[in-house]
Write a protein that binds this DNA or RNA. Structure first.
Lengths: 116, 116
DNA sequence: CGTATACATAACTTAAAGGTTATGTATCAG
DNA sequence: CTGATACATAACCTTTAAGTTATGTATACG
């Protein structure tokens, strides 16, 4: 074992961070939108984009590692299927802020803050 | 004008991508959580983290550019305030997938897929 | 006036993200 | 077996992200 000296930890990001990071790309969101109307092959998913096929494969890998898609195997095709479970987790996180985006509640909070 | 040759476009990401990217970091999510219980100064926000102050300033800038916080000015303090509007946008995007995470609907879809 | 406090900004480093081209691998079709 | 199709993987490049230390700036305080 040559020098265990400088270790960088390399902590894997938490699930929520992985999910949000996966959603922070319009191509990947479009892929998910497409998959919401049914399974699709990689080629079908790649078609709408002005992008090389390996680029799409990378995006799919990101989505897979985020648990947002699962992949089957059918002859030479790898059909992709949406799995929205991580989206539910993300939604649960967001919902905790629902009180702040209702507008009226928001302004009420500001009012209270001002009066105190 | 010396050589307008190679331009990289540098298109600014769309709002949703900016929002999700801002949320894809546990430190920033923690900051938002803290702000959900009221305004706070930069120092107060930085306190819980084992991180330098400039690092927090950077995170705050990311949140600000995402429209998730606004900043006041009070003597030498820059109080930060939550603005959940972008969270609402994110939530609206996510809600379109709610049908896929209800479990029963999900399994029903799988059932239909299998039967066809 | 000078000094402390609160924060921003600059310059730098390391690592990861997103794209490319080139190539490898599995499956079908003849 | 041969070749085409569908996809993955490798190697590479460029940009951005996230952290650091060092320094600058505005405001309060004595």
């Amino acid at each position: 074992m040559p020098a265990a000296a400088t270790q960088t930890a390399a902590t894997r990001p938490d699930p929520l961070s992985i999910t949000f990071a996966a959603l922070a790309d319009p191509t990947r969101r479009a892929i998910l939108a497409r998959l919401s109307s049914g399974e699709a092959s990689v080629g079908e998913l790649a078609a709408p984009f002005a992008m090389s096929q390996p680029a799409i494969s990378k995006h799919l890998k990101v989505l897979e590692r985020a648990g947002l898609i699962t992949r089957g195997r059918e002859a030479q095709w790898r059909p992709c299927k949406l799995d929205a479970t991580p989206l539910q987790q993300a939604n649960e996180w967001l919902e905790r802020y629902a009180a702040f985006w209702s507008g009226s509640l928001d302004r009420l909070a500001a009012f209270v803050e001002e009066k105190k």
